[in-house]
Structures are given as structure tokens and as C-alpha cells.
Amino acid sequence: MFSLFTSALTILAKELRLEFRTRELLTTTIVFVLMVVVLFSFTFEPTAAESRRLGGGLLWIAFLFAGSLMLHPSFTREHSNDTLAALRLAPIEPFAILLGKLLANFLFLLFAELLLLPVFAVFYDLSLLPLTTRLFPLTLVLLLGTFGLVSAGTVFAAISAHARMRELLLPVLLLIVLTPVLISAALATSSLFADPPELPRTALVLLLSFDVVFLTAAWLFGEYLFEE
């Protein structure tokens, strides 16, 4: 019997290896976010001041949509290959499967976000410097927000994998539950793009409480989703 973390890390390594071989999930996600960012400019044509004000919201809407679409394969892929049964038979806690996938999704989405952040800054004329007051706090917001997104999202991916209309259902389930994440992350990001940059403490508290509450709930109740 492995401990929870070693088995979760094994699952994580499997997910990373799978993605490294195909790279389809990351490429599609990155192109998708890029598309949203470009389309936003077509529909609103924001001025410099407006992009500073709306930038945070736009960025998080793009991440949220990307997240709600990219989380989907993490369980449907297992379903279509009939490998979930094998995972379930493994002598590990069911939560380890969820945690491993959660961490993998976290790394994928965070990678895509960090890659797209400079592109976004260039397109919308937003500065990511100075490092200590803008980029580092921004990275913290990205970390906390993305973790909240994937901790609810991975559980909901496991839920929607059993439903009809699953491709459509996952965003529906996820987007409304993520209201607190969207509000706090978008407002914090916008305040960090503003001049002078500022990191609202309330946003961090809200993001952190969301992460803690949903990870705990996933730990307590997520395992029931793996029953046959």
C-alpha cells in the first residue's frame, strides 16, 4: 500500500507522460486562450485605459473557459480507453487518483497561463514590471486562482463523465461554482495592472479559502465518485 502522496505522484507522472507524448491538450488550450484574447479585441476595441481596467476580467474569463474545456479529457480519456477500471483496481486510495489528476491539470493550466501572460501584456499594452510589485503578486493570484479552478473542476470532470451532454455540462457545473474565484482573481488582476499596482488582501483571503474548502471537500467526498 503506497501512501497517498506517492500514489498521487505516480498518477501525476502518468498524466504528464501521456501529455508529453501527445501534447494535444496543451496546444489546444493555448490556441483557445489566444483566440479568446484576440476576439475580445474585435468586439470591444478597448483603449489603453480600458484594457487596464478590463484586462483582469478578460484574462480570467479566458482562463475559466479554457479550464472548463481542458479538464474534460482527464476522465473521458480514461473512459474511452476503459482504463479507469484499472486505475480503480490499483491498491491506492481513490482520492490519490483525483489528487494526481488535479495536480496534473493544475500544472497544465498554469503552464498555459504563464505562457500567455506576456502575449496578453503585449497585445493590451499592459506592463508586467516591476517584478516585486506586479509580476510576483500576479503569479500568486494565478497560482491560487488556478488551484481553485482545477480543484473544483477535476471533481466536476469526474461527475460529468457519467452524464449525457457531458461536454456542455462541465462548463455549466463549473462556471457558476467558480463565481468567487472569478470575482476575486479578476479584481486582483485588474488592481495589479492598475497604476500603481496594488494587491487587495481580501482577494487573497477569498481565493485561499476557496482552495482550502474545495480541496477539503474533494478529499472528503471525491472518492465516492470512483465507486462502480
Partner: peptide
């Protein structure tokens, strides 16, 4: 299956309510 997945989602939704309320009040 419906009973299990909807119970898990129901719990998540209920736990979300105070967070939604606090974040919206702040917003």
C-alpha cells in the same frame, strides 16, 4: 450513479454559497 454524483455536486454547491456571498459583497 445519479444519486452519488448529484450528492457530491450538491455538497459542493452548498459549500460555495458563503464564498459566493462574501466575494459578491466585496465585489
Amino acid at each position: 450513479r445519479r444519486a452519488i454524483v448529484s450528492a457530491v455536486f450538491g455538497i459542493f454547491a452548498f459549500l460555495d454559497v458563503p464564498l459566493v456571498y462574501m466575494s459578491i459583497r466585496w465585489w
